[in-house]
């Protein structure tokens, strides 16, 4: 049986992440049927500027995740600085200010684990460049619950520590450079009916 189409894509990025995210998001199909939720470690206290920077390259609307709201397909959400971002079982966003995990809040693991439990096999998780091991434990949980694991090819990553840590602990269904990753996501989550594609 084919695996189900992802309805939610969670992305974890750390050092070097902004460049990688700009490339990845600039190649996303604007008719994407899934929501994208990003945790990125940066020194910034206000992620709204970060959203603006990403939005320059992306056809998808990008905004900071808002507590208790339900994310919409085709939109990109970024975790605010200083809060862990979680998915509640009903698919809405939850926040917490619990202790940092591996020096990080938001933590990629926290987002991935809660998303895995909310979406199960309809989740896809992506680990990008970074200089720590956040996201590895979360990716393992994603795979345990039937979600799809995608890791940036360490040779393609600006800093390969985070992708390597994820591959080592969790493994991956796909290990790709950013361009191939965008192609894969578009094919998995693009418009459902190819015959309706006006570009064809």
């Amino acid at each position: 049986m084919d695996s189900p189409r992802p309805t939610c894509i969670v992305i974890g990025a750390s050092a070097g992440g902004i460049g990688a995210l700009r490339i990845l998001l600039s190649r996303m199909d604007p008719r994407l049927c899934a929501m994208i939720v990003i945790v990125s470690h940066t020194g910034s206290t206000d992620m709204r500027n970060f959203c603006d920077v990403l939005a320059e390259q992306s056809a998808l609307p990008i905004e900071e995740a808002c507590e208790r709201t339900r994310p919409q397909p085709g939109h990109v959400y970024v975790a605010p600085s200083g809060y862990h971002l979680l998915f509640e079982p009903d698919g809405r966003f939850g926040f917490s200010v619990d202790s940092k995990i591996g020096f990080s809040r938001p933590s990629i693991d926290v987002l991935f684990e809660s998303a895995a439990e909310a979406f199960g096999p309809t989740l896809a998780a992506i680990v990008l460049t970074g200089a720590n091991s956040d996201g590895a434990a979360g990716l393992l949980r994603v795979r345990e619950l039937g979600g799809l694991a995608i890791v940036q090819d360490p040779d393609d990553a600006e800093i390969d520590t985070m992708p390597r840590a994820a591959l080592e602990l969790a493994g991956a269904d796909h290990c790709l450079d950013l361009r191939s990753m965008a192609t894969l996501v578009n094919s998995l989550c693009g418009p459902r009916d190819e015959s309706e594609d006006p570009l064809r």
Binding site: E88, G94, S96, D98, E113, S114
Partner: peptide, 9 residues
């Protein structure tokens, strides 16, 4: 309590 953070705790 909100379930996701309670579960972690």
């Amino acid at each position: 309590y909100a379930p996701a953070s309670l579960k972690r705790r």
